[in-house]
Amino acid sequence: MSAVLEIEGLRKTYKSRRRGVRNALDGFDMRVETGQVHGFLGPNGSGKTTTLRTLLGLIRPDGGRMAILGHEVPAALPTVAGQIGAIVESPQFFPHFTARDTLSLLANAGQVPATRVDEVLELVGLRDRAGDRVKTYSLGMKQRLAVASALLKNPKLLILDEPANGLDPGGIREMRSLMRDLAESGMTVVVSSHILGEIQLICDSVTIISLGRRVAFGPVDEVLAAHSHGTVRVRLDAAEDLAAAAEVLSRNGVPVARHPDHLLLNGVEKPAMVNRLLAEHHLYASELAPVSVDLESVFLELTNTAPVPGQHRQVDESVRIGGAEQSGRAGGGWGA
């Protein structure tokens, strides 16, 4: 499968007298295949928006390589801009123009047929409010307008930064459905969001960024599988046998966590081996089930941003891979 978007070793450094040198992007890599819905995840300040802005020519990178639809950017951005639809961060429009005016001006600037304006207004559900000034819109309606502006060009690559911001539950579901439809029509969608349940539902693949570096990537199933740690839940016929079972398993090198009515085992590659061990000691399992992980737990583990009782994590505190330090304020991106 060919790549619609490729980023290799992208670097962006901000220098400030007060804060010193900070690497918003620290050799970041990313690859998105054609026709996928790709989730782009990362904690606040991890470099997501900096990546998207750099990709779209709004920020000048300090190093690395980027390509969109096979063209090196930012050099070839004027050539490929007509095939990229994007919203970056919160939707921002001139408040005194109507939605129709806003889209019409963009369509004119991009030499898009005027008929496309009504099509995208219909698509995002703003048809009946198209004549209202943008300043009267709710956040969710502005978000819809932003998506409409990104869709105007009927792009091959659609980049949506937090598209569900401000949307009501119905709107979130519509957005999910819209993204799937667009992907089925051949459009590649890159979506950045903190609603990880949504990402898990709609994305084919993900990239997770932390402190300006990629910490995980690939198809969603593979990322989840890679971080499930072979966790298995074991219940026994008799709850009083749990202590004996825990001892047997521990003796055989299986990490065990005891719970009142079950055991949680880690690093189990073959659950059948657990069953055999227990049976050899006349202990019989009534349940032996692999525990599935979700994207949120993988994200929190990878980025080391899970809340800890009694602690207040700061936005720059996140995981750094490839170093001894697993967390800290090692220089993450405040530019994102």
């Binding site: 020519g57 951005l77 970056v88 991009g110």
Partner: peptide, 10 residues
């Protein structure tokens, strides 16, 4: 608005 425009005309 300028940022939006630059996304269309880089």
């Amino acid at each position: 608005g300028m940022m939006n425009l630059l996304l269309w005309r880089p």
